[in-house]
């Protein structure tokens, strides 16, 4: 089963994302900030990371940078799911190694299509 690491500091947002992903048959591991996500990612087996940007402890951009240093996560798709739509923030994400940028609010079907696309 494809495993997705869903990272958001908002419990409501994690609940919404998990509900959408689990409904489509994905296994979901939730994390509440970048550090939590990084620790869980290191345990391995994650096929895709879907992460918020603005989070306490470690934000989404730092999470991408840290994940890209791990051999297992050099090519793993990392999608950012965020309220941030500013071009400079997007460029920052791209430079850090993000695969794509999804601005909230998300449409469940479009989110699932995008995930399918990047998973190949």
């Amino acid at each position: 089963m494809t495993k997705i690491l869903a990272v958001d500091d908002s419990a409501s947002m994690r609940q919404m994302v998990s509900f959408t992903l689990q409904g489509a048959g994905y296994e979901v591991v939730e994390a509440c900030d970048g550090q939590d996500a990084f620790d869980k990612a290191k345990r391995g087996g994650v096929d895709l990371v879907l992460s918020d940007v603005n989070m306490p402890v470690m934000d989404g951009i730092a999470l991408i940078k840290n994940l890209r240093t791990l051999p297992d996560y050099k090519f793993t798709p990392i999608l950012m799911l965020t309220t941030e739509s500013a071009a400079d923030k997007k460029s920052e994400g791209k430079a850090a190694g993000a695969t794509g940028w999804i601005v909230k609010p998300f449409n469940p079907d479009q989110l699932l299509n995008t995930i399918k696309k990047v998973l190949g």
């Binding site: 739509s85 695969t99 794509g100 940028w101 999804i102 449409n107 479009q110 995008t114 990047v118």
Partner: peptide
């Protein structure tokens, strides 16, 4: 209007 933000793949 369905609430939906932009999606961009790099």
């Amino acid at each position: 209007t369905p609430a939906q933000g932009d999606i961009e793949l790099f």
